[in-house]
Design a protein around this nucleic acid. Structure first.
Length: 503
RNA sequence: GGCGCUAUCGUCUAGUGGUCCAGGACGCUUGGUUCUCAUCCAAGAAAUCGCGGGUUCGAGUCCCGCUAGCGCUACCA
């Protein structure tokens, strides 16, 4: 099983393309001796974006998908190639396409076309005006070999077109969609080789897939209409076509149009930046248009490769759900080993200027050494995080003492509440806490504070909310006891008292 | 216009003639755990299976037609 991903380096790796990559890779991994090949289709000189190939491969590497063969990124981040069917970059294979196109001309399956772009344009305009299907009128197909040779030798620019047979039927079985049938008569004599000497996609992909011994071509469903051209071309060459599978597109929230930038981020690397886990993105994308047929919903890469079957891929397009991505990412975050989770937090803390050079950027009194403290912080927030972009919002009060502002006071004592009563409770609770010495643990704290609450017949909420709010400055955070315990005795009391001084 | 692809809860899907008055998940609502948030647990609303014919004792599941949506119709991929 040899499967290829063949992107054009015209921009960032898109979520939709990434899913095709995942399907490609899963198909290769799921087979014994499967090979995943990356080939670069840079035949449209005008659309090339410098550095795009590197970015594409970088995004794939982040996803944990690396080529077995073809173009890859070496240790230094430079493009490199491996495998015995290279080169794997189409612009380096021009002579191969030329040779094959000439062979087709020789055999009468293709012909030179000297029509100018102006004539073609005019022709199309007339066809449109007469409500005829726009297609090449095959004027140059009737040129004699001698005249064709003469004009070519004279340096007249030309393209090479595929001479489509006049009639017949192309029948093909798509791995996802089943049998597809086309009438040959409606096909256009499309261009194989452009006048600049570059092949079109149609020629290049067929030639490469053949010589690179590709056994299965996975591509977007927008390619279905070119399937008959491809099959006919394989026949003209006398080659056996590979298997084909046309993958449905991914739609934006409107359920009609392809997922695009206006729907949200579509570049894979944006998701890395926003703090999504590759395994989460992989899971969501793999399950978009595919299901194992059971009720399982979280798979490791290995399990995915093991279970994935192209035949089970949905035929219809699917809407991408950003909500589900958040849910799945949260699940993977919660299931991260705590040390791994903590590793993801450091760079965010640095970025938010909560840490500098591995140290806290603001002064707080640590209950323990920094590593153990941060581990405790991680433990307190892990189950609340959906993606790492929330790091600052969810943890800043662990690394920076909240400022005592009117807003903080308002949070502790809401406007329409009984100010005096809350003040009393707050002050008394702080006193209770002050009297706790060695027993400053979640259990010890709970024991003491609950005793106070019970003695006075208060509700837990009315006592604990002000404490938690004073400690964090936030309406939502880990619980009061968890905060107290993680922050430690001294830092907690400093915070609680500084509020007391103001109110 | 021509050709092609597609069609089950809002969304992703299970379902290959009877066990489906359609199952799961996300989202939503409610309740429980609980000091807030989140987690976790429980429950609920949510699909006349695009529409119309047919085949069959029986159809989401097979066949035909229709409709709608999307794609292609370049010297772009």
């Amino acid at each position: 099983m040899r499967v290829r991903y063949a992107p054009s380096p015209t921009g960032e790796l898109h979520l939709g393309s990434l899913r095709t990559v995942i399907f490609d890779w899963l198909t290769a991994r799921g087979a014994q001796d499967g090979v995943f090949i990356v080939r670069i289709e840079d035949t449209d000189q005008s659309r090339l974006v410098p550095g795009a190939t590197e970015r594409l491969l970088e995004a794939m590497r982040w996803m944990g998908i690396t080529p077995d063969e073809g173009v890859y990124l070496d240790e230094n981040g430079k493009l490199a190639e491996k495998g015995e069917y290279g080169p794997y970059i189409q612009s380096q294979r021009l002579s191969i396409y030329r040779e094959q196109a000439d062979r087709l001309v020789e055999d009468g399956h293709a012909y030179r076309c000297f029509c100018t772009p102006e004539r073609l344009e005019q022709m199309r305009a007339e066809q449109q005006a007469n409500h005829l299907p726009p297609r090449y009128d095959r004027q140059c197909r009737s040129l004699t070999r001698e005249e064709s040779d003469r004009r070519a030798a004279a340096g007249e620019p030309y393209v090479i077109r595929h001479a489509i047979p006049d009639s017949g039927e192309v029948r093909f079985v798509d791995l996802i969609r089943g049998e597809i049938t086309f009438q040959v008569a409606i096909l256009d004599d499309y261009v194989l080789l452009k006048s600049d000497g570059f092949p079109t996609y149609q020629l290049a992909s067929v030639v490469d897939d053949h010589f690179m011994k590709i056994s299965c071509v996975l591509r977007g469903e927008e390619w279905i209409p070119s399937l008959p051209k491809n099959i006919l071309l394989y026949q003209a060459f006398g080659w056996d076509p590979p298997a084909f599978a046309h993958v449905p597109v991914i739609l934006g929230p409107d359920g009609k149009h392809k997922l695009s930038k206006r729907d949200g981020d579509v570049a894979v690397l944006d998701y890395q930046e926003k703090g999504y886990l590759p395994e989460a993105l992989c899971n969501v994308l793999a399950f978009l248009g595919w299901s194992p047929g059971t009720e399982e919903e979280f798979f490791s890469r290995e399990e995915l490769a093991d279970r994935f079957r192209l035949e089970k891929v949905q035929k219809s397009p699917a809407v991408f759900s950003f909500e589900r991505l958040d849910f799945v990412n949260g699940w993977y975050i919660r299931h991260l080993p705590i040390t791994k989770f903590l590793e993801y937090l450091y760079p965010r803390w640095e970025k938010a200027e909560l840490m500098e050079a591995g140290k806290l950027a603001h002064e707080i009194i640590l209950p323990d050494n920094l590593d153990r403290y941060l581990m405790a912080v991680a433990g307190a927030v892990q189950e609340r995080m959906k993606h790492f972009d929330e790091t600052e919002a969810l943890t800043h009060f662990f690394l920076r003492r909240p400022e005592v502002t009117p807003e903080l006071v308002e949070l502790i004592i809401p406007k329409k509440s009984d100010r005096a009563e809350i003040l009393t409770m707050y002050a008394q609770t702080v006193e209770v806490l002050q009297n706790i010495g060695k027993n400053w643990t979640t259990e010890g704290l709970e024991e003491a504070v609950y005793a106070y609450i019970e003695e006075n017949g208060y509700k837990k909420g009315e006592v604990l909310w002000p404490i938690r709010a004073a400690l964090t400055g936030e309406p939502a955070s880990p619980g009061a006891f968890e905060m107290l315990s993680v922050l430690g005795r001294e830092e907690s009391l400093v915070r609680l008292q500084s509020v007391l001084e103001v109110i």
